[in-house]
Design a protein around this nucleic acid. Sequence first.
DNA 1: ATAGGGTTAG
Length: 475
Amino acid sequence: MFGRPPTAAAATTTTRLVYCWGAKLIKNSYAHPIGRTQFVRLKSAVSAVASELRRSPPYCFPGLVASDEDKDIICAHKNSGNGVGNALGQSDTCKVVEILNSLREEPCHALSFFDQLKEQGFVHNVSTYMAIIRILCYWGMDMRLDSILLGVIKSNDKHLGFKVSDLFEALIEWIEAKGPESLIRAFDALVKAYVSIGNFDEAIDTLFQTKRREKNDTAVAVFRQFKRLGLSPNDYSYCIVIKALCRKGSLEEAADIFQEMEEAGLTPNAFTYSTYIEGLCSQARSDLGYEVLKAWRDQNIPIDVFTYLVVIRGFVNESKLKEAECVLLDMDEHGVVPDAYCYGSLIRGYCKIGHILKALALHNEMAAKCIKTNCVIVGVILQCLCQMGMADEAVDQFNNFKELGIFLDEVAYNIVVNALCKLGKLEAAVRLLDEMKGKKMSLDIVHYTTLIGGYCLQGKLVDAVKLFEEKGNLV
DNA sequence: ATAGGGTTAG
């Protein structure tokens, strides 16, 4: 038995939050179910295309060239006897794009040219791939498109001159510019390629990880498109879509995904539940997230440390520290032992409002419960001390932690280097950085920036400039 | 096969 999540608006009481899957409507109206047989058929169709292409005879250039300049390149290729790859160097990708564009009226030739280059060792980049994809889309050569994208995805970034996600970016930009007409074909190919290697989520996931917020819409659109094409997502994919919907604020739609999953015969797992609750909490609805957690918990739905963590973190981010602490106690009472992440979130919350004593008390509580601290939590505490004007105390604590054998990483070191700089103890700061070097820890641009700032603060501009030059092009 | 903190400048 599983609980249906509440809709964001309707959730007023716990009882209203809880539904039984058993009480659902008949589920025969679903538009695009796909059986395992169809799935396998699709899979073999894709690999058939792939092998057909592999078997196709080597291409030669029978004077189908669009311009004189192109002819020259082809001649160079013929005369060299070394293949196109040698005639066209890696720096000639612009040229390749030009040639492909000039062959757009003869898609088969364009494709052969593209394949031939590849066979000869030419490494295509995003532009050349986009050029051939545009042509194949325009001519509706779906099978060829499938195999091109399959090749890209199978290579898994190896032997490619770019990341697969870069191509996705370009593809999406193009689709956004050109509208849904082209979307169908390009994504059709994308979907099939991923499904054929059993990596369905990767498509959505890659898209989802792209930076901009509005891309969440794209992730969801792609998901819908996948389903429209008759492909069945698995629990991983559903998880990603729930996350995407929550992030764009569509909490109700996200809740509906649970029903879709049921209709597809899939059982949500701890990841799915946590994802939805995290979604609610990330939309500043941690109160709701907590209610859902409790409702689900009452139904013996799998709730783990991570589920509690997302609620604790949600409350902390909403500056509701009392609530966050209640959740910590609550989980303990329900036999789920809080881990360092749970305590860490709470400690971060108290540090943020300058309650360093409370933070330290929690830190001690961890130790009493044998929950190991780590350099991130220590970093939060040290930084808090610094911000409260207790830089010297931070330095002392840092040394204490070090003596206790707690591993301190580059970030923790930088916090203390910064503290020393603020205290005007430049020699000590430099010594600490030397200590890092001795431990084979790597200094990055932040360390240099910190120390340069320290010198500037002392008016030692010569030292600052020297350091600035020493740091070179660190990024 | 999926999840989770902290650092410098402006």
